[in-house]
Design a protein around this nucleic acid. Structure first.
Length: 575
DNA sequence: GCCGTTTTCGGCCCGACTGTTTTCAGTCG
């Protein structure tokens, strides 16, 4: 299970923290940092590899492989145990304070014995920090504020869904400035990570001071953290941090790459630039010898100068995309334009739908889709579900609507996966439906093994074409059930059942990591909005982004196929 | 500690901002 890799990665992340606090060589720290990242992103369970296999992973050498092996066999890493003994425990807590790094933490501990945030607060109150080298009145005040922010618990990551609205509002306001030629959000939001640490906004302008002023004086801003000529950092509503960079229009492409990240992806392509005698920064691509700027105004042109194809932002995580691009193997991932329909949506026929069937159909048609499946809740769901009788009434409604719309309305249902993996209605009635999603809506706290068994049983039902929101998670809310993904993927393949990538930004279920494993296993995916309102249908881009992060191509996605291809898939399931 | 179509040793991405400093260290992304 990937759980192994996450567990091992956590051990190495702790080594990184403790090494920093020990004042270790920065390149050695960086090597461990990379190793931790490589372990976390490894596509195969480390427990199934031998030491040589582990060392073959990029960023992991003999020394790290030995430690991984040591951990997997003994449950401990001697080096980590030694580090824990050597580094005072409180220092780890101290460097969680923003602006307080390992050097300062060490200084505080060595000179004043400060070993916790509480001890630091006391030292500030009693003015004991004064007189320490490099720590003045301002630092003292900044630390006091930073501690208050840690206490306010606003330092965590926020769900993408919450950040997008704020980011779009900030962009909209900046776009209104006449001096702004271009503006967009970048960072992890553009890469469509499921949670966001801060909002990064990039603007192109020949009058940067004006743009920075506009942000700093916006009424959305509650606090200004940094105010320079080139960069502004502020706190906006909900305690989210936003960073603004303003560059000249001709630097926009290079700056967009820089500001989109990820950091590791940037390091990777900058290394590649260096090897070609170039240097890449946020102002452009330069010849190292002549310091001449190469002409490239767009991201694609920068990649081209580096001998690489354009790499879609969601793929930029340094999980092998640069190597694949170099080798010419970068998968042509699915794009929003490839989506021909949506296979999971609700109308007000089921209790929780917020729009009429016609409103939903009209909206789907407006998006240019060839088909849209109305998958209202089935009878087993108390309050919301449709009885068989209501389903028949809805069938008549669909037939009448179909006469007035070109988009093909697929008659479907979101079936409930029962305690034993059973689903609603009877087989004869189910056989009359075009497309069915099956999902867990009850008994959500059952153990992973139970959920896995329920889901696999549901997959074996010929009427079930896709499994909806597989792990039941709500980002920032409900945790996922701990399903056995390998067993699920095997069953999906065996039974010809698709796995849904639920595009709701609150769900993104399955996750991009799971998408990547599903793609490697050759399992068919759907990307669906699970829309309960007209507005929900615009969430498709988040599902596509998640699929891109998992390297899925349009070949992997059922709703990229034309209608007859979709019916072929359904027919194959019935036999 | 990792890695190599210039290297198996000697490098390792690049820059902004802040605060405490007469030229830079620490932190962050």
């Amino acid at each position: 299970m990937a759980w192994t890799n996450e567990d091992v990665a956590r051990q190495f992340a702790e080594i990184v923290t403790l090494l920093k606090l020990s004042g270790a060589d920065q390149f050695r720290v960086r090597a461990y940092e990379r190793a931790a990242g490589a372990i976390g992103a490894a596509p195969t369970d480390l427990a199934t590899l031998d030491e040589a296999g582990i060392a073959a992973l990029r960023g992991i050498g003999a020394s790290t492989a030995r430690k991984v092996s040591e951990y997997l066999t003994t449950g401990k890493i001697a080096m980590l145990e030694d580090l824990r003994g050597a580094v005072p425990a409180g220092l780890v807590e101290l460097i969680r304070v923003p602006g307080l790094g390992p050097k300062t933490a060490r200084l505080l501990y060595d000179s004043l014995g400060i070993n916790s945030v509480e001890a630091l607060r006391e030292a500030i109150e009693t003015e004991r920090l004064r007189g320490l080298p490099g720590l003045g009145v301002k630092t003292e005040a900044n630390l006091r504020d930073a501690i208050a922010r840690v206490g306010a618990k606003d330092t965590g990551r926020v769900p993408m869904a919450d950040a997008v609205a704020v980011a779009e509002e900030l962009c909209r306001r900046l776009r209104e400035l006449p001096v702004v030629e271009d503006v967009t959000y970048a960072g992890s939001l553009r890469r469509m990570r499921e949670t966001i640490g801060d909002i990064d906004i990039l603007a192109a302008s020949t009058a940067p001071a004006h743009v920075h002023d506009a942000l700093r004086s916006s009424e959305l801003v509650t606090d200004v953290l940094a105010a320079g000529d080139k960069k502004t950092s502020v706190i906006v509503r909900r305690g989210i941090q936003a960073d603004l960079r303003v560059v000249a229009p001709e630097a926009y492409g290079a700056a967009l790459i820089y500001f989109t990240g990820s950091k590791d992806h940037n390091v990777r392509i900058r290394e590649r630039a260096v090897r070609s005698g170039l240097t890449l920064n946020e102002y452009g691509l330069f010849d190292k010898e002549t310091e001449r700027r190469l002409e490239c105004r767009t991201e694609a042109e920068v990649y081209e100068q580096l001998g690489l194809p354009f790499i879609p932002p969601p793929m930029r995580e340094d999980t092998g995309e640069v190597q694949a691009a170099v080798a010419g193997n970068l998968p042509a991932v699915v794009h929003l334009e490839d989506i021909r329909g949506d296979l999971h949506g609700h109308s007000d026929w089921s209790g929780d739908g917020k729009a009429t069937l016609e409103e939903m159909v009209a909206a789907a048609a407006g998006l240019g889709y060839e088909y849209w499946a109305v998958t209202d809740h089935a009878e087993g769901l108390p309050m919301n579900g449709l009885s068989r009788q209501q389903m028949l009434q809805r069938r008549t409604a669909i037939e009448m609507l179909q006469e007035r719309y070109d988009i093909r309305i697929l008659e479907g249902a979101e079936l409930n996966i029962g305690p034993e993996g059973d689903v609603d209605y009877d087989p004869q009635f189910l056989a009359t439906l075009d497309f069915c999603v099956a999902s867990i809506h009850t008994l959500m706290t059952r153990a992973g093994a139970v959920q896995t068994r329920r889901i696999i049983t549901a997959m074996e039902n010929p009427a079930v074409h896709a499994i909806g929101h597989l792990t039941g998670r709500k980002i920032g809310g409900r945790p996922p059930y701990d399903v056995d993904l390998d067993a699920i993927l095997d069953a999906a393949k065996r039974t010809g059942t698709a796995l849904e990538v639920n595009a709701s930004p609150h769900r993104l279920d399955i996750s991009s990591d799971m998408v990547r494993r599903a793609v490697e296993a050759g399992v068919t995916l759907t990307i669906s909005c699970d829309g309960h309102s007209v507005g929900d249908l615009r969430s498709m881009r988040y599902g596509v982004g998640t699929a891109q992060r998992g390297w899925a191509t349009s070949q992997d996605v059922l709703n990229c196929r034309p209608l007859d291809g979709l019916f072929d898939f359904v027919a194959a399931k019935r036999t």
